[in-house]
Design a protein around this nucleic acid. Structure first.
Lengths: 195, 195
DNA sequence: CGATAAATCTAACAAGCGTTAGAATTTGAT
DNA sequence: ATCAAATTCTAACGCTTGTTAGATTTATCG
């Protein structure tokens, strides 16, 4: 199975947009990376904006689906949170070009596209907020402001895609574990009876 | 004391760059907001890139100075960390256009400017890393990977400038307090003997 | 008031942008 | 081998970009 040109454009666009930003990238630069003439892109995508939207739509759909899927067989709020964080971090490291773009280029979307992606982002954030709320209600988490904590958590985890590189000191699993610890300790404080 | 045109260009540029990104903004849009013709900008700044650099240089200098100043009369690592986080968050909410730009537009800097700002950012991050290292050495903090925790902390706090608005539900102080709690709990776990 | 400097203006430039039209080529099925 | 469809190409378009030159206005000060 060879990579289709369309898939290559998609992948290289994510990489380019990540490096130079959407508005800092040109269709000719993208075409160069794909190894094709600028005009050829338009056989696969309707416009530059169309490529950006495709990247964001696909990324958010995947993310939502992955997290929802993991939630199915998790019972306690803590178990849910652990799994949700892990999935989030894994996706933000493996497909880090796409997730970085999806995170950083919201403002480059035209009005209609913007609405759709924002809606998906709100839904995604809601999953995490619900987990934290549940944890508070069950008394296993203590959080002053759940919305604030949700934002802090997601920002902290999303930020990984800004600096992660696969050859680095830490593996994805190690990073995910440390982030989970970091956040859970503050919320649950349950490992502190050691001291 | 009236606002000078130069100061107005500076401020409006930060606001514009934040909204549309550096590459998504034009000198004519900026001139419109200032209430001046496009060419007039060049009497105060050498180039568009010069404006971006001025914003980033000023912001990083202020940030470094403010944090270093606060460190002078703080003794324990925990006290230092509390103060550092508070200063960081305060600056990222009060001057949030500038700090947002300083955070998000690194990639839009030309090579030489890029180097200088990155150096300042590294120095800034180092302050936080040192505080955490000190805390670990003194045994009051327990952190698996100090560099990782530093990144997580800064990303979490910097993210505030992405969504904060002065009319919102929470005051700056409340937000800062909650973020401090959130992070310290995980690191020190010292408030958990209540349960 | 008159002169010097600072600030802003109008007008235009060369270059680069996203996109399109239409021709040429490659691919796949019969 | 032939034809049709899919794909890629060359060439160009209209427009916007950052920036500059040079004239014009505004402020400063003896």
């Amino acid at each position: 199975m060879t990579t289709t040109t369309k898939a290559l454009i998609f992948k290289e666009a994510a990489r380019l947009f990540r490096e130079k930003g959407y508005n800092g990238s040109t269709q000719r630069q993208l075409a160069d990376r794909v190894g094709v003439q600028g005009a050829s892109i338009y056989h696969h995508f309707p416009s530059k904006q169309g490529i950006l939207y495709a990247i964001m739509e696909y990324t958010m759909t995947s993310l939502l689906q992955k997290v929802r899927c993991e939630m199915l067989d998790a019972s306690s709020p803590e178990a849910k949170l652990r799994k949700a964080i892990k999935v989030h971090i894994e996706y933000h490291t493996v497909d880090r070009d796409e997730t970085y773009v999806a995170d950083a280029e919201l403002r480059s979307l035209e009005a209609e596209n913007f609405k759709k992606i924002v809606a998906m982002r709100v839904a995604y954030e809601q999953i995490f907020r619900d987990i934290l709320s549940e944890g508070v209600q069950e008394g296993v988490m203590r959080i002053g402001d759940v919305s604030l904590a949700t934002k802090a958590l997601l920002q902290m985890c999303t930020g990984i895609s800004y600096w992660f590189s696969p050859g680095g000191r830490r593996s994805i699993d190690e990073i995910a574990d440390q982030y989970v610890e970091l956040f859970l300790f503050g919320i649950c404080g349950k490992l502190n009876n050691e001291r």
